[in-house]
């Protein structure tokens, strides 16, 4: 994308053009900070964390904030859903950057910061919130294109959807347990075994995280099936499986 954009700028007469080819992934890898747009802070399906002291947060905070003072962050890391886009802010820029690094280290992939001066929220009664702080995180994933929600997947498990469950994990993984009634075709065998799947039903695909399920979904869509994939952590032990968003 960026080389093409650079080419257009060059055609328009610009003479001093550079491209950061390594892109955002490399920037992230270096531990450099990334920022969310104000629109995303206000309306995105995010976990917005106020890292300031409780008292400050109680007086004025960005609407929808969860208050986790920086000093308490370590104890709360487990409460942050790893797939949620997390946006952090603080009146101490260094702490906010440190917190972002901590969260990334914890495996939370989408972490960004509120950009610049917080005054555009905190000093405007209309744009801010006050009162007792919120400490509980309530985040629900909005299924993206091709995804099945945990709710629909669960309904299919109890037979209340016209859908079959397809498990694409390896045979070894299935030995620890599988969902009752699920079809099992390991991902690597799927291209030559799609004929075993029903064409008149929805197919809800799962693996252990959603990565392989998405690959299977792409294969089945190409082959004309009504497939959907589940993005969630599935852990199976002693025959039973659990779903964790």
């Amino acid at each position: 994308m960026s080389p093409r954009a650079a080419g257009l700028a060059k055609e328009a007469g610009y003479t001093n053009i550079k491209v950061m080819l390594a892109g955002v992934p490399a920037w992230k890898k270096k531990g450099y900070p990334l920022y969310a747009s104000d629109e995303f802070v206000n309306r995105g399906n995010i976990v917005l964390i106020d890292l300031r002291a409780r008292e400050k947060s109680r007086r004025s905070r960005i609407p929808r904030s969860v208050t986790i003072p920086f000093s308490e962050l370590d104890d709360r890391l487990d409460d942050i859903p790893p797939r949620a886009p997390v946006v952090l802010y603080s009146d101490n820029a260094e702490e906010a950057e440190d917190a972002a690094k901590k969260l990334r280290k914890e495996g939370i992939k989408n972490v960004s910061l509120v950009y610049g001066d917080l005054g555009r929220w905190l000093e405007s009664p209309a744009a801010s919130e006050s009162g007792p702080v919120v400490t509980e995180i309530n985040w629900v994933r909005k299924p993206g294109r091709g995804e099945v929600s945990v709710a629909d997947f669960t309904r299919a498990l109890s037979g209340r959807e016209n859908a079959v469950i397809l498990d694409v994990r390896t045979p070894e993984e299935c030995e620890a347990g599988a969902f009752p009634g699920a079809l099992h075709i390991p991902l690597d065998e799927l291209p030559r075994r799609t004929g075993e799947l029903p064409v008149n039903k929805k197919i809800y695909i799962h693996c252990t995280t959603g990565a392989r399920a998405e690959m299977a979904y792409r294969q089945l869509i190409k082959d004309g099936y009504r497939a959907y994939f589940l993005v969630a952590d599935i852990t199976c032990d002693e025959g039973a499986c659990e779903i964790d968003e």
């Binding site: 960026s2 650079a6 007469g13 550079k18 950061m20 992934p25 490399a26």
Partner: peptide
Amino acid sequence: VDRMKTALKTLPPRKDILLVFYCGGYT
């Protein structure tokens, strides 16, 4: 990138200003 052509007029008119582009990696 698909809006780049129309957005060119929003860039500074000085043609020697440094423009730095980036995207999601080697794409």
